[in-house]
Amino acid sequence: MSFAPLLLEIKNLHVHYAVYGGRLKVLDGVDFHMRTGEKVGLVGETGCGKTTMMKAILRVLPMPPAQIPQGEIYFNGRDIRKMSGNDLQRVRGRGISMIFQDPTAALNPVFSVGEQLGAVIQYSAERGKALSHQEIHQRAIAALQEVALADPERLLRSYPSQLSGGMRQRVCIGMALATHPQLLIADEPGTSLDVTIQDQVLRLLRTLVAEKDTSVILITHSLGIVREMTDRVYVMYAGDIVEVAVTPNLFANPLHPYTQGLISTVPRLTGGGIASGIPGRIPNYLTPPTGCRFHPRCPHVMDICRAEKPPAYRVDDDHEVACFLYRTENRV
């Protein structure tokens, strides 16, 4: 797998939000890469910048208030940030699709499912191959059938407010996959649904991406889902990538104190029950902690952590960590 070509590479991405009283430095030099066919997980607490990073990839962050002072985002070797309108639209249409966290907010309340799905299908068609109304309709039906929704004809005429949360999420998945993307970004799919529906939606998503061999970035704060669905995991804390590893390694041997804390918060059936978790909370981005952003919550904090931002150290072939505890290892 590691011989597959690079699909997405992010270098030193910074995202700030200009707010009253200053700038929120949410992403602070993020590096990320993935190869074609990979299923990559991105985990971290709510508010750590996962969604911001994904929206930045597709250039759909609301600007202002968001700003990207520096960073490069390569998709198939081309910098998305430097693309013209047409090229960008092609990447969004056929290259990368995104499923948003809250399906209720992601669907336009005043357009029917058919109008929204139809527009996605219409504009993701290859250049110079305009689709007839009939073709669009057929593809829309197929897209809904693919996500196991019954009675697609009626559904196309329905409005989002007439659907249940689970159905909305399926419609969103159907819309995202209707463009046959190379890369699917799934932002906490099903988080807003109840547990059984969430489970169904995730199973469906897993089956579909396996069938189509789509590359996936799965954002979640559920480690169980990551373990089941991904090959490699990025762990994010307060706008920094703190650890990257192939999935089994991360669970067998978590290196960063934050990752260790995160894994220990998962309740276990065998012994212990609910563990201590990580005391404290995500810092304020207006005045983030100096040095390592995790140091105020870290049980192993050292003087250097307060002064300097830790670089990434390569501990193993497939395992990198940004923590001074590992400073005897090779820097990346």
């Binding site: 597709l58 962050l61 969004r92 907010a105 309340p109 504009y123």
Partner: peptide, 24 residues
Amino acid sequence: DYIASARALGIPERVVMGRFLLKP
């Protein structure tokens, strides 16, 4: 989010603005 979603799924800017943003 529905505007971000429409953009992210490749709907051109003029259609996003003139249709999906204007009507609501």
